[in-house]
């Protein structure tokens, strides 16, 4: 009796742990991942199966098909939209990174009078959401003659990328010992040489984090792309799927889901390579 008690206790605590930790966690994972599963399975279902739950188990595909993907790739301008989105995302990320590195270096390392205020102003810029800016910005884009051009997106996306990247990089620069730069200064290196040869190589993890973040944010952007681009072939993937594939009353769910899946894949792949950077930059930025 007495030696059964600890065993009972440990079994009891294990059961308790299953109920309080593993079951809720499994439910969370199920709910968070289900839409992706559903998206994937719909993308590979033939139309007959898609709209008939009585004959087929909706959770599985009995005869998978690539029809939806084929239709998407060859009957629509999907590859073109994908290329545009890719170009815009890389362009905006490059501009944002260059501008943020320089700004963060000036604010954190050159320490001029009022650098704190410039930092605060850039932080405040992050708090201005695109949804209050897009109407006047449409006007500005129109004045610059950039309306209906992907260039408009490349130039406007940095407005929400720069504040975030700058703050992230300020945090990284702060972690690099200032003594290294002082040594180089005494050795006669110019400021730009120091930035290029010493600070930047040491801040590579920060640059990667900022780059991934900027890339995913530009890939996901919607409202500017919706407001500034009107011709079909210049649209980005999220906008094009919603405005070009959704037409009439009969929705092509298979093609829609295939489009959503293919549109999410590049970010997901990109993300999976750099998960650790991504998580650390997300949490770092919040803690900053």
């Amino acid at each position: 009796m007495s030696d059964a008690t600890p065993e009972l206790l440990s079994w009891d605590s294990r059961a308790r742990r299953v109920v309080t930790v593993y079951v809720p966690l499994a439910c969370f994972l199920l709910v968070l991942l289900f839409p992706f599963y559903w998206m994937t399975i719909t993308a590979f279902k033939p139309n007959g199966e898609l709209l008939d739950y009585k004959q087929n188990n909706p959770f599985w595909i009995s005869s998978p098909t690539l029809d939806n993907i084929r239709k998407l790739l060859f009957d629509t301008e999907y590859p073109r939209w994908l290329m545009t989105t890719m170009g815009v995302a890389f362009g905006a990320t490059a501009i944002a990174l260059v501008a943020s590195v320089l700004a963060a270096y000036a604010i954190q390392r050159l320490r001029f009078k009022g650098s704190k205020w410039v930092g605060l102003a850039i932080y405040l810029a992050y708090l201005v959401p695109p949804s209050i800016l897009f109407i006047p910005l449409a006007q500005v884009v129109f004045e610059f003659g950039l309306f209906d051009s992907p260039m408009a997106l490349v130039l406007t996306y940095p407005t929400f990328l720069i504040p975030f990247c700058t703050w992230l990089l300020i945090g990284y620069f702060k972690s690099i010992p200032y003594e290294l730069e002082e040594c180089a200064l005494i050795d006669g290196a110019s400021r730009l040489q120091i930035l290029r040869r010493i600070t930047l190589p040491l801040a590579v993890p920060g640059l990667i984090s900022a780059g991934i973040f900027a890339f995913t944010l530009s890939w996901n952007e919607f409202i500017y792309a919706l407001a500034f681009i009107s011709s079909s072939e210049k649209k980005t993937v999220p906008v094009a799927i919603l405005t070009e594939l959704v037409q009439g009353d009969v929705y092509q769910w298979g093609a829609l889901m295939a489009g959503a899946l293919l549109g999410s894949l590049p970010v997901a792949i990109f993300y999976s390579f750099f998960v650790e950077y991504y998580v650390s930059s997300l949490t770092g930025a919040v803690k900053e």
Binding site: P35, F36, M39, T216, W219, N220, F222, V237, P238, V239, I241, L242, L256, M257, G259, A260, L261, G263, S264, V267, A268, Y271, Y278
Partner: peptide, 9 residues
Amino acid sequence: ITPTVLSAI
């Protein structure tokens, strides 16, 4: 990380 519009669809 997936585009909001795509998960919204």
